[in-house]
């Protein structure tokens, strides 16, 4: 049953145009990394790595990709009415949510993690390239799954999930989290960077001090669980057919 839902979700999400767009987006940081290496002018590679992977991958690419997959996995079906074919079935609603999250988060991880790993590996040097790349890959995987979960829950709470998600990413994480250290406790991006650094990412920081690895993971797990519960509860009492 979950497999059937996952299958149709995968086909809906991995449409030709969306896949092409996301793939192009994800190749961008890799291209930038290649250009930096080719130019040979970068002296402080750790700072460059931090800039490309932090800014481009974890802070921009991952939330955008997750926003696309997270808000459309269930949200667009609820909007166009096809969700009825899943809802009007003898299936516990939590199974529908789980199937949707697994597919959407899986897709987001599959497209973003290689981009993070590849660009970090290209920019790395000597013995540090592998731990850097692994750290960023892990941070990216956590960020992608968590963003997808939060945006999917958001799409069940409001029909303007895309706009609100964008504001969260740009305003809260982009501006406020850089100014006030306190906001990092409520920033998916900061969890990801905390994990990345704990595993082996470069210690260079831009913005507030990194969260400690275990704290970051604990916070990420807690936020994921809360978003999951909210999503399931919303879907259990979701009402269809209000517009008569």
């Amino acid at each position: 049953m979950i497999r059937a839902i996952a299958g149709v979700t995968f086909r809906a999400l991995a449409g030709r145009r969306r896949t092409l767009l996301v793939t192009l987006l994800c190749s961008l940081p890799v291209l930038v990394a290649l250009l930096v290496r080719a130019s040979g002018r970068a002296t402080d590679l750790d700072t460059v790595t931090a800039t490309v992977v932090d800014r481009l991958v974890i802070s921009t690419l991952v939330p955008l990709v997750a926003l696309v997959f997270g808000t459309s996995a269930l949200g667009s079906e609820l909007d166009d009415g096809t969700a009825v074919y899943l809802l009007a079935k003898p299936i516990a609603r939590w199974r529908i949510v789980v199937a949707k999250v697994v597919v959407a988060a899986g897709l987001a991880v599959i497209v973003t993690v290689p981009a993070a790993f590849a660009s970090a590996a290209l920019l790395g040097s000597g013995s540090t390239w592998l731990p850097h790349a692994l750290g960023y890959a892990a941070g990216t995987a956590i960020a992608a799954s968590l963003y997808v979960m939060v945006f999917l829950a958001l799409s069940l709470v409001t029909s303007r999930a895309l706009a609100i998600g964008l504001v969260y990413v740009l305003v809260w994480e982009g501006i406020l989290a850089g100014l006030f250290a306190g906001t990092r406790t409520f920033s998916i991006r900061q969890y990801a960077l905390g994990v990345a650094q704990a595993i082996g990412g470069p210690a260079t920081t831009n913005g507030p001090e990194r969260l400690e690895g275990m704290t970051a993971i604990a916070l990420a797990v807690a936020v994921f669980a809360i978003a999951l519960v909210i999503a399931i509860r919303r879907l259990q009492s979701f009402e269809v057919g209000e517009a008569d």
Binding site: V8, R11, A12, G15, D80, G81, T82, V84, Y85, A88, K89, P90, I91, A92, R93, G241
Partner: peptide
């Protein structure tokens, strides 16, 4: 959700997964 074993629903809205 158990009621859907007994119910078949044909909604008015036209959208059906177009790729299937």
């Amino acid at each position: 959700p158990a009621i859907y074993r007994r119910i078949g629903l044909v909604p008015e809205r036209e959208a059906v997964y177009p790729f299937l």
